[in-house]
Design a protein around this nucleic acid. Structure first.
Lengths: 296, 296
DNA sequence: TCAAAAGTGTTAGGAATACACCCATGG
DNA sequence: CCATGGGTGTATTCCTAACACTTTTGA
């Protein structure tokens, strides 16, 4: 039996006469915060190299924000999901496929792109740095991996009659070999008797395009939460790694020193030991581990 | 000093000549999973009323999915953020403002709307049921509050050479006074050496429009996670409530019985006691609490 | 020899779990 | 009186923080 709508049309008839409304539609871009961890060599032959958390930024070659740095990304096509769009852009930028990708939030501030109505569906990606060449994209000048520092500057809470307003202020510092960008971001939670909302605002921003400072701040916070709660950080590791290397990655993400014994107990279930060891390290060899597929 | 782009234009000149590309753009809708908790009276004068977790659904009056039930929502306008769009739609549907609203995910499956390219930016809202009239919207026949049941049916894990595929299968049951809708949803996590992704799929679906079964499943999971980790469930409570009422709300959300003593210790910091008590309850009076603004 | 890191054991404190018990009300 | 829920104390288990200590390597 065919259902008829209020105009007496069957679904087939409805679809045939249906025309997409000509009201305004937004462009939807996928913007990606691509994280990786790199090493810096040390002079002391005994010392381990230090780890750095980095993200990929692209220098804008056109207006608006000409010369500023932006997250890699692009517009979504109607033949793909945003997940697929993100994976496609990621592969175009870095040449890497099969990467950990997680949708973050959709950012839609009015006027966030001065050209036209553009929403940003943001993603974070985690890549083991051994999987790509250091220089991403075609033109080396236009892409760079920036070291990420994201630190709480201050927090402020005000109690209202019924509710409160609390603001956390963070400094986001991004440094490449040539350049240093700094932004200050506020996260404000407003709690009222029946509602509660979180708003991110850019207090100052030197060198980042659009609202990308917000997106990066949001991504770092999500990465930290996920690192504490899941095995996500293992996606930043090569196939074989030592527990100290893994601990260094946790520490550089969380911006916090961890105790060795406690850390090893915490990640014990996430990794499996192998019979391989590091060599020529200038100190006792270290057992190599790999991801554990049995648990979770 | 004015920056010139590769065509030698200043930013002002660029903006004046810029035309929005005429490539295809999606419509972006906000779809909302509006949760509330209702009570059912009992015959026994001593017994407490039972709590039920409910969501608001609208019966579709046109093609496609004519007669099926859909989440309330609507299209976003260029003059507002999706957050504002969600708040506006919520107020239109329920007449309530100042509500807890949280952005979930943006769902973008190709063909999810047979008419045209539509993305859904989904939200969940939590409302204390004393704040609105039971019948939402203008036409009573077209809107109903459905009791939510979301239960794990089975889980299945397959180990691969390097990685695994794990699927959780849930039954989503939505029941109003007149109707019962059932859907079966799979959450599949695929872990490979370098990637890991989660995909929701609808295995069967009786009575829900579009991909809304997925969105509801996602929302229930988020609500459960947030209930465990934050004070979010308090947004479902009236200004004054007993600890047993709060525990009932937690239990109905988590679909799990909790121990009284442990529960009270857990929420102790989230609430403040008042000097008010319940009356005529058929048993010992119970102290009334309110949300605590000092903590967190 | 010794700096640097690898690796393990022990203790103390705090949170969640489970259970037991007493109190107060109103029909 | 007593069914029903209100409310609290305590023993047990588990997890984590903190610290201490031993082992192994290569210039």
């Amino acid at each position: 039996m065919e259902l008829l709508d209020r105009d007496g049309l069957t679904e087939r008839q409805f679809m045939e006469q249906y025309k997409a409304g000509d009201y305004e539609r937004p462009s939807v871009a996928t913007d990606m915060v691509i994280f990786t961890v790199t090493q810096t060599e040390t002079d002391n032959y005994r010392k381990l190299p230090e780890k750095e958390l980095r993200i990929l930024l692209i220098r804008r070659g056109g207006h608006p924000f000409l010369g500023k740095w932006a997250l890699p990304g692009g517009f979504t096509r109607s033949s793909e999901t945003v997940d697929q769009s993100a994976a496609r852009e990621l592969s175009e930028e870095t040449g890497v496929e099969d990467v950990y990708l997680e949708q973050l939030q959709t950012f839609t501030d009015v006027g966030r792109d001065p050209r036209t109505w553009v929403m940003s569906c943001s993603y974070m990606a985690l890549i083991d740095s051994s999987r790509f060449k250091i220089q991403a994209g075609d033109d080396a000048d236009d892409a760079a991996w920036f070291k990420v520092s994201y630190r709480l500057l201050r927090e402020h809470k005000e109690l209202l009659e019924e509710g409160y307003v609390k603001t956390w202020t963070y400094e986001l510092k991004l440094s490449s070999e040539e350049e240093e960008l700094t932004a200050v971001i506020n996260r404000t939670v407003t709690a009222k008797p029946t509602a509660k909302s979180t708003v991110y605002a850019i207090e100052s921003n030197d060198g980042l395009a659009f609202d990308h400072a917000k997106i990066i701040a949001y991504a770092v916070e999500r990465l930290r939460k996920q690192t504490n709660d899941t095995d996500i950080a293992l996606h930043l590791m090569p196939p074989l790694f030592t527990l100290t290397e893994l601990q260094q990655v946790y520490e550089v993400i969380l911006d916090k020193e961890l105790l060795k014994a406690a850390f090893r107990r915490k990640v014990a279930e996430l990794v499996t030991e192998t019979d391989n060891y590091t060599e020529n390290a200038g100190h006792r060899p270290s057992r190599l581990f790999r991801r554990n597929w049995a648990e979770m």
